[in-house]
Design a protein around this nucleic acid. Structure first.
Lengths: 227, 227
DNA sequence: ACCTGAACACCGTTCAAGT
DNA sequence: ACCTGAACACCGTTCAAGT
């Protein structure tokens, strides 16, 4: 119907007409997350991101005042994958609901290379980040915990999950820094009898099992608090 | 007795004679930790460290192949402050011993600006780092836990402590990124009822209480595992 | 053996100027 | 309004050359 036969007078209705912007925040964040997956956090530079967007580096600063702001937006976006509509493990008791939320956070961080490092280095107050906290605290309060305990439990779960995933991704994505062989060698050289006995469990790098163990401790600890 | 009266022939015994090296690894690490405290991790550059050592930047690479290696040595040194001789909370039962070790790790990280970030970004296999793991695993094994549980519990305690201290230092050392006021505002703007109820506890920033709460959950969780 | 000087290949960020 | 071009003040790392 309104197909433009002659572009004499540009219609004022469609504001993206004339010169459509090459840059928009959403696509920039998406491209940055792609670049993160391909090259890692250390290689994610404003200049390389600009190149990927077909633009000069300085142009990025029209939408993000600083690289930190971009990273914060990326961290916030990472948590968007969570199923906010149907809470994980719903209708299975607060313990499984809580575990489901912790697993969802870990999964969201694992979904992107260096995801935990990005998350740890930023402080988002976006809906996804706050929504996660809301869900976790809500689960516990509705189970009868007071808001103080619920809040502190949420902080403990987030700290543990962040710390765990940080080490997990450092061990995996790292080229060589977290070499399990170097650990084995260093342990046997020094005289660490207890560590020597434990090294098969540590060096097997079964991160799922390690995460579940720590998560279980936190959940059981909360159950003990219930009386 | 053997005081050098005339330096005619440099004695082959004292190798530090002639031209004493301006650089040695120990002093370099100590200076780097000082610089870290004064300026923070982002301002800790090889060039600024070289300046503080009275040397050209390239000279640092004779003792540290890369900046990562320097940071790893710094992380290892940070844990040296721990009382390795007398384990924290010794003779008070495994639970207080474990808590003492976790508190010592947090204290060691807090002792330096961005200490948790330095620790998180490196992977040391030095005696201090391994000695800490040895002490924690030893405490649990001697209390009757099997080596698998002891190892996984150690990983959980380290992950939680690291994650917690990371957030603590980000909130404190950060110029503005972790503004509690911004959190309050963001929470009340959106509709997060549970979070609204919990925000006084979260935003009070009583990190000691938050750490002790999480630590208690882990310890109680381990007690539940004991049967 | 230990360090200097100087370079290489980058960074994040700013800002006048163009369209 | 949106982006370019170009600069500023830096980076980590390498390496011939000096002493």
């Amino acid at each position: 119907m309104s197909s433009p036969s002659s572009p004499a007078k540009p219609p004022t209705r469609t504001p993206t007409r004339g010169r459509p912007p090459k840059l928009d925040p959403d696509r920039t964040i998406a491209t940055a997350l792609d670049l993160l997956n391909e090259a890692g956090l250390d290689a994610l530079t404003m200049r390389r991101l600009a190149e990927a967007m077909g633009v000069q580096a300085g142009a990025l600063y029209r939408y993000f005042a600083t690289k930190q702001d971009l990273l914060t937006a990326m961290a916030e976006r990472m948590l968007a994958d969570r199923d906010t509509a149907a809470p994980e493990g719903a209708g299975q008791g607060w313990d499984e609901e809580l575990a489901g939320l912790a697993r969802a956070l870990r999964a969201a961080l694992l979904r992107h290379r260096d995801g935990a490092r990005v998350f740890a280095g930023t402080y988002s107050t976006g809906v996804n980040t706050l929504g996660f906290a809301e869900a976790l605290i809500g689960t516990l309060r509705e189970a009868g915990f007071n808001s103080g305990d619920a809040a502190q439990a949420m902080l403990a779960v987030v700290s543990f999950t962040l710390g765990h995933t940080l080490e997990e991704q450092a061990a995996l994505s790292g080229e060589a820094p977290a070499d399990p062989e170097r650990l084995r060698q260093a342990v046997t050289e020094s005289a660490f009898p207890h560590l020597t006995a434990a090294v098969p469990v540590i060096a097997d790098a079964d991160f799922n099992a390690h995460f579940e163990f720590g998560l279980r401790l936190l959940v059981d600890g909360l159950r003990a608090l219930e009386r």
